[in-house]
Design a protein around this nucleic acid. Structure first.
Lengths: 109, 109
DNA sequence: CTGACCACCTGACCG
DNA sequence: CCGGTCAGGTGGTCA
């Protein structure tokens, strides 16, 4: 679906990942009912581990964010500013309706 | 009943006082019905002035707090971190069912 | 716009 | 060392 090079804030103490608006609205649209409390999205990483993030819209900053759960991912993967996270949808039939998350170190690019 | 040495957060911009769990559950138990909206507790200070605080339980942090009304008390008494607040029940027959709040400056200890 | 209030969230710390 | 506690936060709402 899309990648994001994470910012210092994305991996810092704010415990949130900003999803660029064009990707958010294309791949994770929030309807009126979901807008209130956001969604709980589940992603599988390359090890098969499941990650649940709260995904919602912040009116105050007019931005889409992953909040609850995100900091645990940052910590486990030791993400640093400049690293890349990828959000993907399963391509094979068996995984067509599953979501995946992957990451790449800046140093490895 | 009990004292608490207030923290910077208790007298800062968070406008809440955390009540240590063991004291909260012993002296201000919340039953299932009160759990939803909390309680309005009234305390008398040494000048006879009445203070009403909203008292409730925060599920997310699993803690008991005084919220609404608390910041006005901090401001009027000029409470600082390290000062002590005391919650008391009337001992004399005439005050047996009344609640009192008192405070002591750290400098006076 | 500002500040109080509300319901959440998290990490550091400690027994 | 693990789990509970709680100090220190957040965005949203409303007067």
């Amino acid at each position: 679906m899309f990648d994001k090079v994470v910012t210092p804030s994305d991996v810092g103490k704010l415990n949130r990942l900003v999803i660029p608006k064009q990707h958010a609205e294309k791949y994770f649209p929030l309807d009126a009912t979901a807008n209130e409390k956001g969604l709980l999205l589940s992603f599988e990483d390359r090890t098969g581990k499941l990650w649940r993030f709260r995904y919602s819209y912040w009116n105050s900053s007019q931005s889409y964010v992953m909040t609850k759960g995100w900091s645990r991912f940052v910590k486990e993967k030791r993400l640093d500013a400049g690293d890349t996270v990828s959000f993907c949808r399963g391509a094979a039939e068996a995984t067509r309706d599953r979501l995946f998350i992957d990451w790449k170190r800046r140093a490895d690019l």
